[in-house]
Design a protein around this nucleic acid. Structure first.
Lengths: 235, 235
DNA sequence: TTTTAAAATTGACTTTTATCAATTTTTACG
DNA sequence: CGTAAAAATTGATAAAAGTCAATTTTAAAA
């Protein structure tokens, strides 16, 4: 069950994998010569909004949520970054503090690249610079989508979109793309969809009654992708 | 009445003015050698979401709204770009179609810079490239803010923030910063705050009753900035 | 100025969504 | 495997926000 032709999934992914992929060998080596690989346990914070950046992060394995916390302590998950994605570069490039926080969603292994190495390679590599410009510009579209969906669409549709996006994130590169298991807490799901936990639970029950999804414990499988796409009113 | 120290207005502006400002003379000339200045009347469309970019746009005078329209025809204004700002570069840099639309909010004069010139200067000017990286990275923070505010905060707070942001946009560089006149249709205001027009009208009446703003016709003046900041629950 | 179309406002009502307080289920771990 | 803590679910209720249908006000044009 592919989304091809029925849902513009590109508009929901940052494509930051492409930044370090097929970077010239030399650039890559210079970039990673002082890098350190760190293990993160589930829930462990990678960087925190408002702090000064000391480098950028490459996700070798695992998943990382990027989020913001409002003045009342409520969390909103902006994005889930997957294996192969680069995170934390906005702060360094803008010369600002981190605009958001990042925490591991599961046991992850992350390469830390010091700011000085990143900036040094950027100084001489037009390829890296172009890749960053391309990714950042693409991100703009993703975020613009997000904003207008949050501003205009009801929770039911936002949740449908969230599930479709998560399904892609949780795809294992195995053959069995039909049975993608979404494994995320209801709290995190609510925090992505911008809704209360209880409301998400109720809407998931509805989706289940409508035979759009199956659930077992916290796990969710989408069993009717095209119908969920139509529920999302997005495509 | 300044926002300094009481409201982080930087987190709501793109800062794209800095892209062409203090660009080396030579780069600027090459960039603009084939540029065309066009007049736009109020409401006229500059570019449309989903179309292929043919260049980028520099706002010499006037104001431009950047917006998206959902499947039901409802409009959401993502951003208002002011005199001196550059717009429309994301599509070209990402190699994609326009992620949003742009239309003049008032009589405006806009410089069109052909894509080929933009890309040619980018190819050789590391200064332009760095400025773009900086602006795009800063924009990420602005958009991330936006998303979490739309996802988590109620309309009353979003409207308070919207008014504070608009006040900055409508500042004339005169001395009289106290009496900034916000002149925008209720429809556009609602479309920025992500609310119905009627709800915006009612909330504006509340703000008026609470002596936060004054109105005359469609025009709005914020008369108690610090209190409106506190209503926004954002600072 | 007068006229008229567009925009803004108001009231009544409905729908959506959040919140609070249990209760049940699941998961982690000794 | 059993148990405690955490997470998920449910029901009841309240609050927020949208919609629809007038009516009034404003602004644009003759």
């Amino acid at each position: 069950m592919s989304l091809k032709g029925i849902f513009p999934i590109d508009k929901w992914h940052y494509n930051s994998q492409s930044i370090l992929q097929d970077l010239p060998q030399q650039d890559f080596e210079q970039l990673t010569k002082n890098s350190v690989e760190e293990k993160y346990i589930k829930g462990q914070i990678v960087f925190k909004e408002g702090t000064l950046p000391t480098g950028i992060y490459f996700i070798k394995h695992g998943k990382v949520k990027k989020y913001k916390i409002d003045n009342f302590g409520k969390e909103h998950i902006i994005y889930i970054a997957n294996m192969g994605e680069l995170i934390g570069y906005h702060a360094t490039l803008a010369g600002e503090r981190f605009p958001d926080s990042a925490a591991a969603l599961e046991q992850s292994s992350i390469l830390f690249i010091p700011q000085s190495d990143f900036l040094a390679v950027l100084e001489q590599s037009t390829i890296l610079s172009k890749k960053l410009l391309k990714t950042l510009s693409h991100e703009f579209g993703v975020l613009a989508n997000n904003i207008s969906v949050f501003a205009l669409r009801p929770v039911r549709e936002r949740l449908a979109i969230t599930l479709l996006v998560l399904r892609e994130k949780f795809k294992t590169n195995q053959l069995e793309n039909i049975h993608v298991e979404i494994n995320l807490s209801r709290e995190d799901l609510a925090s992505m969809a911008g809704a209360s936990r209880e409301n998400v639970v109720r809407l998931l029950r509805d989706f289940k009654n409508e035979s759009l999804i199956e659930t077992k414990g916290r796990k969710i499988w989408i069993i009717n992708v095209p119908k969920l796409v139509s529920v999302s009113n997005y495509a």
